[in-house]
Design a protein around this nucleic acid. Sequence first.
RNA 1: GCCCGGGUGGCGGAAUAGGUAGACGCGCAGGACUUAAAAUCCUGUUGCCUGUAAAGGCAGUAUCGGUUCGAUUCCGAUCUCGGGCACCA
Length: 859
Amino acid sequence: MKYDFTHIEKKWQKYWEDNKTFKTPDINEIEPGREKYYALDMFPYPSGDGLHVGHTEGYTATDIIARFKRNKGYVVMHPMGWDAFGLPAEQYAVKTGIHPKIRTEECIAQFRRQLKSVGFSIDWEREINTTDKDYVKWTQWMFLKIYNSFYDEKEDKARPIEDLIIPEGLNENEKYEYVNSKRLAYIAEVPVNWCPDLGTVLSNEEVPEQVEKGYTVVRRNMKQWNLRITKYAERLLNDLNELDWPGNVKELQKNWIGKSEGAVVKFKIKTDKEIYVEVFTTRPDTIYGVSYIILAPEHPLVNEITLDKNRHDVDEYIKATEKKSDLERAELSKVKTGVFTGASAINPVNGEELPILISDYVLLTYGTGAIMGVPGHDERDNEFARKFGLKILPVVVPDEIYNTDNEEEFFGKIRNGEICFSGKGISVNSGIINGLKSDEAISKIISYLESINYGKSSIRYKLRDWIFSRQRFWGEPFPLIHLEDGRIKSITESELPVYLPEVESYKPSGTGESPLANFDFWVNTIDSETGKKAERETNTMPQWAGSCWYYLRYLDPKNKNTFCSLEIEKFWMPVDVYIGGVEHSVLHLIYSRFWYKLLYDLGYVNYKEPFRKLFNQGIVLGEDGVKMSKSRGNVINPDNVIKNFGADSMRLFEMFMGPLEAAKPWSTKGLEGLYRFLNRVWRLIIDENTGKLNSIISEEKPEEQINKLLHKTIKKVTEDIEDGDMKFNTAISYLMIFVNELYKKDKISREIIEKFILLLSPFAPHISEEIWERLGHRGSIQLEKWPEYNNELLIQDFVTIVFQVNGKIRAKKEMEIDKDIKSLEDEALNNENVMKHILGKQVVKIITVKNKMVNVVVK
RNA sequence: GCCCGGGUGGCGGAAUAGGUAGACGCGCAGGACUUAAAAUCCUGUUGCCUGUAAAGGCAGUAUCGGUUCGAUUCCGAUCUCGGGCACCA
């Protein structure tokens, strides 16, 4: 009987399903003291294209770990679900008039079938779908918790809005406005990325993806819902330290959060009125080198301070800026532009008069939207000053130039714009901070500015609040209503979920509102508390909403009372290993961390961080070495691979291609190699004529040499799975070496074979189950104990000693282990080839490393 | 421009508390089995040179230099590929 992978794989997939082999026990069924392991995959968006080999690569890695941990005695959580809200289903609905829910179900069915065909050890009873009413209910519930919370700066955590202390003396309306201004979800007129083709706004993070697809994105001011993620900037940054994440992802998040420490400084505007402009700077020590002030064109002060004679130019400039998208603003910026407002400001440290300009290289959204121009020590300011002929002053010198003969030359070069020094050094021409190192100068000048009430230290982040609304149909509606008096109110929890209507048209409204705005029957509602007329909020949430917390719902998927019980959450969280694509490094992973921290603040979860260990799988390239794409026709379909070679071969090959994080090309030839390996395993153990065990398998005790190799293999495979590097390629190569060795034997102990099959089983579970059964066992191999290795058996009797002369290898010799240094050296010096190379030369010294090498140094 | 990560045979990739470079697989070449092919099995496979052979020599981990008895591994400079950020003051 040949290795009939199709038959074997179907048989065991059915067995696993019938016997609920991978069912994770309920919390009260778990024996006390048993260790848990939570192996999580980034759940897929079920697209119409079906699963691709990139999905299966990451999922295979997680599955290997999950299966291994079960064998190791852990109670394992290994679930799967669907991130099913999303644009493709909606666009399909616009085209066909079929409700996205229906299309989504079709796609899910396809994905589910495919995932099952790979043999992943998933507990399918925990399957979740972000578009289910039950799931949407809890996403909306969480939104309400966020909406009804504020950030307590003193306690540094979110708290329920009821705890907010409202200042005395406010009238009803002011109270309402005050509370709204503190909510962690708020509506605001903000510049957004509007995509006319899609009829929706996009988050900054989403823009590049859609632009790549050929959609245009423009900048436009719109009222949008925002989440105050910026309140969590510091915690999101600090808590990265405790995570076992790839360094580059931590770095990416760090850059994204973009913390800068510096100061805000007030400059008085030279008029008879008391107006000040505030700037943010990381280098307040350069304040004596300021030669002008620049405001962002949108800065609220611009209109107020502009002189009549400059007004025309300023207005023109603002108009031109408005037309530019962010992208253009950045790109065109190679040549800096700007105009004078005619106004000037006073430098608080020396009374200097400074012209005020506007320029689009200053961004309203960062810092205070205004900067102090220090052209001697900032590249951008330098470029600007040279273009506009503004004065350049040297106020910092590098340590090595300070107080040397080169100082004057350096000053000259700064003044004429030849060089710009943005590093730290020593302050000069700087009044009270002369002679101080930059860091000291910074603290001293800040103290001084504080003392005269003209500035204070300040920390700024690049991270912006999260624009949380989308003008789409296929997303979670906001559980909010608009009353006739214009007020916004959250609906009561008992009314959740607010689900999407059954309609026939999904086209954008054209007004910039969500398609939901088209359906009066859905929009018009009644405030359940007062019975008054109200309209539903028609925006929907972004796709990230559902993926912010799905890993929690798996733990307690059927709970009607809460999204996940606190006790269950405590047992299973945090996630022990989370595998997915690097493209989610800043989007999904920062949003989920934020969301989880918020739930933590409000007492709904037990930990500070959700994902203890993160790993990014690399992409699988096409056979031609470039990214797989339909247009190139180099897409590999897992269905075909499984049909032709089996799921076990595919799993094995995807792990054998190389380290998990690397981008690697697919190779059908390579896949065949792994298929060949499995055939070798099969034929080694099974007699192809009878289907019974091969006659070379004996009940005798294992032979010593092969037993030693087995234990070496156990050690390697165990460590490769456990160490977290996800280098399964080397584990598999050891399994191959072992099989190659077995092929040289004419008798193999059954014990050896059984342990080997256990080692193979996480990688190639179907064939392993089948062989395990044919070896006479009942029940799944998943229930067996993982083999342990015996350290004593790892000790080698012989080692190869290398003999070198002057570092060049001249001979090698097999020698008994642990030979003393003297006998190693004697052996080396007596070696024919060594002698040849030291002949006629003087031996200077001999360097010997026990069990490794002898190096004879000669002159 | 800035930050991060890489450059090892024909290919995917092994091996770094400095100590046998190229494990394992693919491909290729030769052989066995077969009428033949496929499948399978065995042998070889970094390059160059000497040698019938056994064997030996030289070079070699992007390039150049350094430290060392010894460097793919450590240090410096350069080239190059990939990813991220990109006026963040």
